[in-house]
């Protein structure tokens, strides 16, 4: 499964020193971009020079619209992520622990997860309109699946031999959950949360594109840029979205490496 590869990569960045060679390609791209626009080889209406994007960024960052937009997007993202991932842990763990729940709910869940995320949007907007509630629900749904699947996989992975240890030391139900099941499943749960954080941000932007005309947001700013044929603004918006996503990924890497420090680094 993809979740396990992500979790094993997660502990590496902290151990590795920063490698400057990774900057060669972006720097080269920036150079070519600056060159072709400066030499007039391309239509600068469609491909503006980097300095135009930079000056747009500088002026846009100064505006209240920027902070409101970014703030609104982040707020929706984190709200949806929190709700969806909490529901995911509870649901996935329950499905993993209870044979009964696994039999009754499992098949339905494993079928429903194949509905493409964006296919839920028409239904959600029909029920909840295009406001924040619909967006947060959609973002929550995007976070729910990877976390639920991670928790389910993690709980299933707990060895019988460890459950016997719990029996020998007389663990009660609550102790079983918090002293064995959740910590035992934590690598897969964290891998699921990591994916969920990325999915939730994608869903945040996607929801702003597809549930348009609904208040501020960073995706909304990009749409306005497109409507005004302000290509520098569109590019700046894209970069900003990518930057926020990368930042989330870094934070997730750090947290994961910290929480899973009990695992062999060579794992």
């Amino acid at each position: 499964m993809t979740t396990s590869t992500i979790s094993s990569d997660a502990s590496l960045p902290q151990l590795r020193r920063f490698d400057w060679r990774g900057l060669v390609l972006p720097a080269g791209f920036l150079l070519v971009w600056a060159l072709v626009t400066a030499l007039g080889w391309v239509n600068t209406k469609l491909i503006p020079p980097p300095q135009a994007v930079l000056s747009t960024a500088v002026s846009f960052i100064g505006k209240a619209q920027f902070f409101n937009g970014l703030g609104a997007s982040l707020w929706r993202d984190l709200a949806g992520f929190a709700i969806g991932s909490l529901a995911g842990v509870v649901f996935g763990a329950l499905l993993g622990v209870s044979r009964w729940a696994g039999r009754i709910v499992g098949p339905t869940f494993h079928t429903l997860k194949h509905i493409a995320l964006f296919a839920w949007l028409p239904l959600i907007s029909t029920w909840l309109g295009q406001g924040d509630a619909a967006k947060v629900l959609f973002i929550g749904l995007s976070a729910f699946y990877p976390v639920a699947l991670g928790a389910l996989e993690g709980v299933h992975g707990i060895a019988r031999s460890q459950l016997e240890v719990a029996r020998v030391y007389g663990f009660g139900r609550v102790q079983l959950l918090f002293k064995l099941i959740l910590p035992g499943a934590s690598p897969q749960i964290l891998a699921g949360l990591h994916l969920a954080l990325i999915y939730a941000w994608l869903a945040t932007i996607g929801a702003e594109y597809l549930l348009a005309k609904s208040g501020p947001g960073i995706g909304d700013a990009v749409i306005q840029g497109k409507a005004a044929f302000d290509v520098p603004l569109v590019i700046f918006g894209m970069l900003l979205i990518g930057l926020v996503g990368a930042l989330f990924n870094q934070i997730a890497n750090r947290i994961e490496a910290r929480l899973l420090r009990w695992r062999d680094a060579r794992h």
Binding site: P183, G184, W262
Partner: peptide, 8 residues
């Protein structure tokens, strides 16, 4: 097998 909890 020792059956220790690896996270502890």
């Amino acid at each position: 097998e020792h059956r220790l909890f690896p996270w502890l």
